[in-house]
């Protein structure tokens, strides 16, 4: 079966006063129908840029494609004109942004913000779009949708705004829903509700989801597969079980160690010391080398190739080379032997 979306060697750079920032450096991943792929990584690792480039929403200039392809429906989105992209955005691929407080237009009623896409992509009348808007608000769990639809964003709470954002994104039944840290700006209890909602909605509509987050905890319950990003590259991918129970990349270990454990020992969270590489002058070798406790000579100057550990798991680390010493994942990166699920 062919993939829904295939991203190959995608590179994106920004021209800035400080030189060229290589925000995304040769990222390759794909997405199946109806699955959820999580992209995980620290701040600045290039997650948002990757996600926005899929919809060609990266401002260009200063941004530019420095190579690679994004194949959707057997067509390369990189090659599309702006006009052609308008026909894809919101219809085939939709996006939810991080901060629901700022991602809705404050001077436009929610209903109108939902209708716009319907009117544009499905040629609906205003009336029909309004009614569909009410259905969508109901679908995302907003009480009293007939009244709520005419309200403005400031009359909604944060969680409700994110629900409304989801309604906007889902309006035209997109094949792919990109959610860029959809819960980061919300209270913990609301976070869980929004994630549940996204899962329910996915079951109902069958849309594939790309879930971007820096919180591995979110991933465990929400995703099928995980891509771990660091320094503009994907350093490890695998399905959820592989990433949680058989991670092979030291950066993935670091992320797991910094995750709060459910079994409740009050051991300290181990944040990864150091800071991510400067993408204006990216390291020649492994991007994690400067912070990696296992770094070897070779790491600094040579980028490791991907090692295929299974059908689904690939890891880019010299430790997997046969000449490298045997290193085990540290204790802190073990997910307690028990399930991470609640």
């Amino acid at each position: 079966m062919s993939k829904l979306l295939e991203v190959k060697d995608l590179s994106i750079a920004f021209d800035t006063y400080g030189g060229e920032v290589q925000a995304v450096r040769g990222v390759t991943f794909d997405l199946d129908e109806k699955e959820t792929l999580a992209i995980v990584g620290e701040s600045g690792s290039g997650k948002s840029v990757t996600a926005q480039s899929l919809m060609r929403l990266v401002p260009m200039p200063p941004g530019k494609f420095a190579g690679g392809s994004i194949v959707f429906n057997e067509e390369d989105l990189v090659e599309k004109s702006d006009k052609q992209m308008e026909g894809i955005r919101g219809k085939d691929i939709s996006m939810i942004f991080q901060d629901p407080m700022t991602s809705l237009n404050p001077t436009m009623p929610i209903g109108k913000q939902i209708s716009e896409g319907l009117i544009k992509h499905q040629n609906m009348s205003k009336k029909a779009a309004h009614n569909r808007g009410i259905e969508l608000l109901k679908l995302v769990g907003i009480p009293n949708p007939e009244r709520r639809i005419d309200q403005y964003p400031h009359e909604y709470s944060g969680g409700m705004r994110q629900r409304a954002m989801i309604a906007i994104a889902l309006a035209c039944n997109p094949k792919i829903l990109i959610a860029d840290e959809p819960t980061t700006a919300l209270d913990v209890t609301i976070q869980a509700q929004i994630l549940d909602l996204m899962r329910d909605v996915q079951e109902e509509t069958g849309t594939a989801i790309i879930l971007i987050t820096h919180d591995l905890g979110v991933v465990a319950n929400a995703a099928n597969r995980v891509a771990v990003m660091y320094g503009g590259k994907i350093v490890e991918t695998g399905n959820v079980n592989e990433i949680f129970y058989n991670p092979k990349h030291p950066y993935t270990w670091g992320l797991l160690s910094s995750m709060p454990k459910i079994d409740g020992d009050d051991e300290e969270l181990l944040a990864i010391p150091g800071s991510p590489p400067d993408l204006a002058d990216p390291p020649k070798g492994c991007p994690f080398a400067a912070r990696c406790p296992y770094a070897m000579k070779v790491c600094e100057n040579h980028m490791p190739e991907y090692t295929h550990l299974s059908e689904t798991q690939q890891t880019a680390c010299w430790l997997l080379d046969e000449r490298a010493p045997d290193v085990e994942a540290p204790e802190s990166a073990m997910v307690g032997g028990t399930k991470v699920h609640e």
């Binding site: 929403l57 219809k91 996006m95 942004f97 991602s103 237009n105």
Partner: peptide, 20 residues
């Protein structure tokens, strides 16, 4: 952000600039 949202719905440049 909401201009990005408007663009992500597939609205044209003109609609985004003037309506939103």
């Amino acid at each position: 952000d909401y201009i990005k949202t408007a663009k992500s719905k597939g609205l044209g440049q003109r609609v985004v600039t003037y309506k939103h």
